[in-house]
Design a protein around this nucleic acid. Sequence first.
DNA 1: CGCTGATGGATACAACGTACACATCGACGC
DNA 2: GCGTCGATGTGTACGTTGTATCCATCAGCG
Lengths: 247, 247
Amino acid sequence: MTPPETPPEDAAAEQPPASLWERLDRPAPTPRNALTPHRIAAAAVALADSEGLDAVTMRRLATTLGVAPMAAYRYVSGKDELLELMVDSVYAELPLDRSGTDWRATMRALALALRAMNLAHPWTSRAGTFALTPHQLAVPEHAFAALAEHGLDADTTMAVFRTVTDYVRGSVATEVALQTLQHEKGWPDGDAARAALAPRMTWLMSTGRYPAYHRYLAEATRKDDRDWQFETGLDCVLDGVAARLGI
Amino acid sequence: MTPPETPPEDAAAEQPPASLWERLDRPAPTPRNALTPHRIAAAAVALADSEGLDAVTMRRLATTLGVAPMAAYRYVSGKDELLELMVDSVYAELPLDRSGTDWRATMRALALALRAMNLAHPWTSRAGTFALTPHQLAVPEHAFAALAEHGLDADTTMAVFRTVTDYVRGSVATEVALQTLQHEKGWPDGDAARAALAPRMTWLMSTGRYPAYHRYLAEATRKDDRDWQFETGLDCVLDGVAARLGI
DNA sequence: CGCTGATGGATACAACGTACACATCGACGC
DNA sequence: GCGTCGATGTGTACGTTGTATCCATCAGCG
């Protein structure tokens, strides 16, 4: 969308315009009582948590900060950077304690933590595909450290990491999509959701094109046990990784 | 967002207003030379394929159809339904040939087909989280049929399906996010992307907080071999499923 | 005390989704 | 043959969004 990035660097410094994260690290030139990237991010995250990502509007955000609509643009180049900031601030909460346990326990704990994070902030699975922020980078760092002692080459290490986290990402995306739908339609639980979806589902089943799925609907008993579903899949993935890599 | 759905049903029929998919099945009451859901979906998909999901605007769409901005609303209740239609029409292309091969070959082929679909239509990983359309339902149906003969209970069957497809979804989401970024910034390949991201990355590495990741950057040789990455992870997942379920 | 650079405010614009009322056209009963 | 009617597409309009641009204000320093 934006043209290939040609900042006007004829005037003063010739370094690129000090990326968001560099600016963030210096302690703010004039610490009045005012706006900071952290305050902005915190407000945006709170808004997204309570009313969904669509409620995060530059104007809404400015209102909750008690500030004019354009004020935040002093700290964030646009909405994209705001989203990066939000995602990074959520990743900052991830518990990455490097206990002395083995790689499998570490990866399993990481997977559970990532899922918990995504369920607490459901909008991350829509916003945070890949942003390369400091706290996001801490995740592979953490995993690589745990995997380092097994003599895997770099590519295989990454493959292990990606396999596990990609499963988590996909699983959580599915889960969050359903949870979000339930939430915004006001269905209290899985039964209510199924009741609301029943007409559509009944019609689909009446076409006779989905006999196996029909059987599933009739026989399944853990349709709402998301924890079991997630961990069953996760253990399969970890088994597979362990077996294929001989660790 | 929308109030809990109270269609005005005092007038004529008292059945719910004939869902999108029911309307789609009857061959269209007056087949003039005109707009149909299929034409609309095809135009929208073409637009999204060539210029990204953000280019799919009710107005843009109307223009490419040679029609007034509001015309499509006769066939689609709003943009959400348009997205459903788009996603369904893309799933319709999925090759789901039920060859006589075993479950593992079927699931592997399904995973590869899903990935190919998502790479051909990168916007699906942003739009199509869970929509319950006819052609989407055909995917679990296909998988369940292949898994039926192994005596798994319904919940376990679903777990197998979800484990594999969730891995695919997550993996493809990562891949597409990067590909999209590259595309919209105009970077021709992975090296160009790394070059463009170098300032940010250099700064991150210079903090010294990511030694393991730094080592990965230096040593990895298959950073751009997405096929290898995907299939390695996929085979891990399939191994794990097979081992844990004894099949 | 007056200057300067940083901070926030005000105004404005194009583009978006979509509600609503209107025009037009094909088909069918008389 | 003709008038009627329902289905299909048009025109206009409103509220909301992201953001560019210019202006007011204030802190801190000489």
